[in-house]
Nucleic acid binder design. Structure first.
Length: 187
DNA sequence: CAGTGGATGCTCT
DNA sequence: GAGCATCCACTGT
């Protein structure tokens, strides 16, 4: 497996997000192939970066190739991969993985057996991989993170993003066609 | 299956 | 004090 090129994330998120489908993401050796992501840019009213920089979203405004981790609904963690250039808040939300590495640790952390239930959602995936606030702002090309390029061009489907009240019409959700590991099917 | 609601914590109004 | 880039258990078909 080849590590991702160093400048992979130094591009607009609308280029990076579809390119992330099929990329292998590991945290401390646990993870799998990305099968679903969503793109968020600073002109997007649904993005955390839309209203400017705050202590919570600071990592989104930092250099590309780093993690932005936030708490969702007071319960779950969600992992974003920061894109573009410093000062411009663009990031891809990792929504689902096909588990390939460290299945036993995922099952122990999640408390479920079914492979399809381990990483089929942004909160689930962070629980399975042990991602928390401690990972916010960390570079993606150093431990505990590791990212590896895909080996074939996947068939990608698009659709509207999930769970938004604003900006829900833009088709900035990208998925691996036909994957059983998606958070929800594409229409 | 589809729909509803509770848990939970933090940010921003 | 509202509103979440969620998940799960529970209800009623």
């Amino acid at each position: 497996m080849q590590p991702l090129p160093r400048d992979f994330f130094a591009r607009p998120v609308h280029e990076v997000a579809p390119d992330l489908v099929g990329v292998t993401l590991l945290v401390d050796g646990v993870g799998g192939a990305i099968v679903e992501v969503e793109a968020y840019d600073p002109e997007d009213p649904a993005s955390h970066g839309f209203r400017g920089r705050t202590p919570r979203n600071a990592a989104m405004f930092g250099p590309p190739g780093h993690a932005y981790v936030y708490r969702s609904y007071g319960v779950h963690w969600c992992l974003n991969l920061v894109c573009e250039e410093p000062g411009r808040a663009e990031a891809a939300l990792v929504r689902a993985l096909q588990p390939t590495h460290g299945l036993a640790r995922m099952r122990a952390r999640r408390g479920v057996e079914a492979e399809r239930a381990l990483c089929s959602g942004p909160g689930k995936l962070c629980q399975a991989l042990g991602v928390t606030r401690e990972h916010d702002g960390l570079p993606l090309d150093e431990p505990p993170f590791a990212l590896f390029a895909r080996e074939a061009l996947p068939e990608i489907v698009t659709g509207p993003r999930i769970g938004l009240t604003r900006g829900a019409e833009t088709p900035w959700r990208y998925g691996l066609a036909g994957s059983p590991f998606l958070s929800r099917p594409f229409r």
